[in-house]
């Protein structure tokens, strides 16, 4: 009874806090009306050219910053897990590593139920993809990502009129774009932009995953795996269907490349569309509406991460099964 009462009391306070924040956001959006967002596909550079790579200057882009942040988070988790797993000697892990162990164990059991004895080979791909994509997807929920950055006047078209206020905080000059045309927001180059909204990131993972599928297939079936793509075994023995089998093999070959595109653009499309939607909702209805869409993006980010990893896992487990002998046609 006491607990019930207490939770009721907490909810009673929380709703006043929510109401207060909504009223506060009404006033702040009156004082500083949000700008029309600037949407662009390629990542922006946040530093000067660092070194030459393949004959081109290499800049540190804001999606690369986000990727590095996700890397650091994952490596910290991995390191703490490694350290505590060495200490614990088979005991159940405590604290945050125990939580992570539980989650990763769920992924492992899923892999085992799908892939059977190849689970140990497939599982690292599945888990790494899921974890990295999950961390970088959820980064878009953090306030300040996509909105805090360097101000670069070169990006703004010359005829645009912009209100720029300069604040002095702790001896630093902070500039804020507080008004003007929609072009003005293009001047802000955010330090961090969600990694999944960069096609390089998603394409890299997709290529890695599809290459991994081929590697797993080759390890499981040896050279027999390649007959899936170049199927001449029935070409001269069976009059009509041999040709069809050969054609199916070629289609399989094409579908491997389509897999790359499909992986890359699925993740990119979902997360890019999600962050664009967050900008647009935030600029159209500055009060409260974005909260609901943040919740939606939370789920979309998790689902896309799991789908990316799970599809890789399923394709890999299919690659371990030979089709040549199982089918009777």
């Amino acid at each position: 009874m006491a607990e019930e009462k207490q939770s009721g009391w907490r909810w009673g306070v929380n709703r006043w806090i929510v109401l207060g924040l909504i009223i506060l956001s009404v006033f702040t959006s009156q004082a500083y009306p949000p700008l029309q967002p600037h949407i662009q596909l390629p990542a922006e550079n946040v530093s000067g050219p660092l070194f030459m790579l393949l004959g081109q200057p290499f800049y540190l882009t804001n999606t690369l910053v986000a990727t590095l942040l996700a890397d650091i988070i994952l490596l910290l988790i991995g390191f703490s897990f490694w350290r505590s797993s060495r200490k614990s000697e088979g005991q159940a892990l405590k604290g945050i590593t125990g939580v992570i162990e539980g989650m990763v164990e769920v992924l492992y059991n899923l892999t085992e139920s799908t892939a059977g004895k190849w689970a140990k080979t497939i599982f690292p791909f599945f888990a790494t993809i899921t974890l990295l994509v999950l961390v970088s997807n959820w980064m878009e929920l953090i306030p300040g990502v996509d909105s805090i950055g360097v101000f670069d006047e070169h990006h703004i078209a010359e005829e645009a009129q912009c209100d720029i206020t300069t604040y002095h905080v702790l001896g630093m000059e902070l500039e804020a774009v507080v008004g003007g045309d929609s072009e003005c927001s293009a001047g802000v180059v955010p330090f961090v932009r969600v990694a999944s909204t960069d096609l390089n990131f998603t394409l890299a993972i997709a290529i890695f995953a599809v290459a991994g599928i081929q590697v797993v297939g080759l390890r499981a079936q040896g050279m027999g795996y390649l007959t899936k793509f170049w199927n001449t075994s029935t070409l001269f023995k069976v009059p009509m269907f041999g040709v069809i089998d050969f054609g199916v093999g070629l289609i399989e070959l094409v579908s491997e490349f389509v897999k790359v595109l499909s992986f890359a653009f699925r993740l990119f499309g979902n997360i890019f569309a999600g962050s664009v939607m967050l900008f647009v909702i935030g600029s159209l209805v500055p009060v409260f509406a974005q909260s609901a869409f943040l919740m939606l993006e939370f789920f979309v980010g998790a689902i896309q991460a799991i789908v990316f990893g799970m599809l890789t896992m399923i394709f890999m487990s299919q690659a371990t099964i030979s089709h040549a002998h199982g089918d009777d046609h």
Partner: peptide, 18 residues
Amino acid sequence: GINLGYLLVQITNFAIIF
């Protein structure tokens, strides 16, 4: 936004993490 250099960097990064 696809750039071969960044693509290679991302692939390397993913491989390291992996």
